[in-house]
Design a protein around this nucleic acid. Structure first.
Length: 550
RNA sequence: GCGCCAGUAGCUCAGUCGGAUAGAGCAACGGAUUUCUAAUCCGUGGGUCAGGGGUUCGAAUCCCUUCUGGCGUGCCA
């Protein structure tokens, strides 16, 4: 992290010169190259404190900083900026570090082993995963990979709503299809039932296993059997889809299990102890409005059953009991009205609500030939995650889902994702990686080797584009930390795309491997080795393959 | 009505947390391969950062307000 280094240098010089310096100032990359590799507003921020004009203060600091050998030039500009130009030797030193670090480059102990729970996807076990789940899967998994890489102790968790109303309806839907198989006329399929073709498949498979036997047991037992069968099968389907997407979970939390273990009662009794519940209209209420929710919420319905809210409270209670430092829920946009009451419950239970973070992923619109693909859940006409993966491939799908920041609506262009051309950013990134592999192979054939590489040779790397590539490579660890802190995987997609672009441009202008120019070639091969290393790491963190050949 | 998210080039979006002349890609047009992969590169045009006000040395970024779009606002999950 160069910015940190420069900050430290500034602080040191200020101390030596007896200049007051608070930490409010910034070090950043200016828009214009003529303004240096980095610049700082330190003199402007601290001018009042030192009773000096910004320009005067800047001059003083700059004089001290000029003495450091990592800077080629330190200059002062108009309102009071200090501009830093780094020495080539500094870049070369960093480049060697990058290659030496290998696939650990960018990793750090930044997260200080803080325990992080990432809950995402958590789709109802009532059907195949859809594209929204796919976005959540790509988002959550990439965030997990990066947070782990920068030193957090992260866990992925999938919460299965395998109890309650929805799964009863699922069982009834299977029942109807099962009856149909046995020649019964079930008439119009109820609108609230699950219409998807997979329900029929489930019935067929159940029938293959059990035949008409199920008619000889009570309806209650039969429905229970169907429920278990359907849940098991759908869970396997979802697991399989996620596996195709290279996403796994450390833990699957079952709502049914929470109920069986009495966590719901536990949560309810804590709320009662905290005097946050009361009875009214034959129902039990939670006084969530005490904690900022807009109104109180029902916990136990007048029919004696808990609302879906209760298991959610119980589930979150376990998250806190398990001792996580950071708890991240990745939710769809339709849940944001729900969060205030959840946070109210956490406060009522006496836990630190600040540990809970909610990330809302916005909706996805699929486009095909410029037309939005209309999806209707009722008619069972949805595009599943599996169909999407088959259609565009895992790599493209994961990239496209990560490419936008979570709060943006995502327009997914199916045509573009399938294209194998420069228009498709996924291939653009992968091709850069493959291209390097190809150059390295060629160099090997030409007997240009990198073994026992002498750092002095890197002096040949002095072109502006070479230095800005190295600069970009040096940024990598900082990008990962920024990404982890802000929970914004899209930064990695942009970063990778930019790096790939730099390689392609570099390739177009310079002969990298040239047997007639051994020393220069070795320097350049060293550079592209570093690029390839970083490309491979970023692609891996995004769950995208890094091919050697395309 | 209230709440949340968004509004940046014709389109899709970035913008490193308040910095200097707001950036890419696509689309349009014009160029570049006797070459380490043209799945690539170079060039050209394109902007009232939705509107207005405020905060300060300085605002796409922070505050207020108006407008537009999406979602939410169940004893459904």
């Amino acid at each position: 992290m160069i910015k940190e280094k420069i900050r430290k240098d500034i602080f040191n010089v200020a101390k030596q010169l007896d200049i007051h310096c608070n930490d409010q100032f910034m070090v950043e990359v200016p828009n214009l190259k003529t303004h240096g590799d980095f610049s700082s507003n330190v003199a402007m921020v601290n001018s009042r404190l030192n009773k000096l004009k910004p320009m005067e203060l800047a001059e003083k600091l700059a004089d001290g900083l000029k003495k450091k050998k990592d800077y080629r030039k330190v200059e002062v500009a108009k309102p009071g900026f200090i501009n830093f130009f780094l020495a080539n030797s500094f870049y070369h030193k960093m480049l060697v570090n990058i290659v030496n670090a290998g696939d650990t480059y960018g990793s750090s102990d930044y997260g200080k082993k803080r325990k992080v729970l990432l809950e995402f996807v958590s789709a109802n076990p009532t059907g195949p995963l859809n594209v929204v789940s796919a976005r959540a899967a790509a988002y959550g998994d990439t965030l997990f990979r990066v947070m782990t890489f920068v030193g957090f102790h992260a866990f992925r968790e999938f919460y299965i709503n395998d109890a309650g109303n929805q799964v009863d309806i699922l069982a009834e839907s299977v029942e109807l299809r099962y009856r149909e198989l046995h020649g019964e006329r079930v008439g119009e399929f109820p609108p609230e039932a699950y219409h998807g073709e997979y329900v029929r498949d489930l019935a067929v498979r159940l029938n293959a296993q059990e035949g008409s036997k199920l008619f000889h047991i009570s309806e209650k037992d039969r429905l229970e059997k169907m429920k278990l069968f359907a849940l098991e099968e759908i869970h396997k389907m979802q697991l399989e889809s996620l596996k195709r997407f290279d996403v796994t979970f450390e833990n699957w939390m079952s709502e049914k299990k929470l109920r069986q273990e009495g966590i719901l009662e536990e949560a309810l009794s804590y709320l009662a102890e905290a005097k946050c519940t009361y009875e009214s209209d034959d129902a039990v209420w939670f006084s969530s409005s005490k904690f900022g929710d807009e109104k109180d919420r029902v916990l136990i319905k007048s029919d004696g059953n808990p609302t879906y809210f209760v298991p959610d409270i119980a589930y979150h209670l376990t998250k806190f009991q398990r001792g996580f430092d950071i708890i991240i829920d990745v939710l769809g946009p339709d849940h944001h009205g729900y969060v205030p009451r959840l946070k109210a419950a956490i406060q009522a239970l006496g836990h630190d609500v600040n540990k809970l973070e909610i990330v809302y992923l916005q909706h996805i619109n699929l486009f095909e030939q410029g037309q939005q693909v209309k999806m209707s859940k009722r008619a069972g006409k949805i595009i599943t995650m599996d169909e999407l993966i088959s259609e565009v491939g895992k790599d493209a799908a994961r990239y496209f889902f990560i490419d936008r920041k979570p709060s943006s609506h995502l327009n997914f262009d199916l045509e573009l994702a399938k294209k194998k051309s420069n228009e498709n950013p996924v291939y653009y990134c992968q091709y850069a990686h493959a291209r390097i592999a190809s150059i390295l192979k060629k160099a090997k054939n030409d007997k240009i080797t990198l073994k026992k590489f002498d750092i002095k040779n890197l002096k040949k790397l002095d072109k502006p584009d070479e230095l800005s590539i190295i600069k970009h490579l040096i940024d990598f660890p900082g990008v990962l930390i920024l990404l982890a802190d802000n929970r914004e995987p899209h930064r990695l997609a942009s970063y990778t795309y930019e790096l790939a672009g730099m390689l392609h441009k570099y390739y177009a202008v310079h002969q990298i491997s040239d047997p007639d120019n051994l020393e220069l070639s070795q320097s350049r091969l060293f550079l592209i080795t570093a690029i390839q290393n970083v490309l491979a790491i970023s692609l891996h963190l995004m769950g995208i393959s890094a091919p050697k050949k395309m």
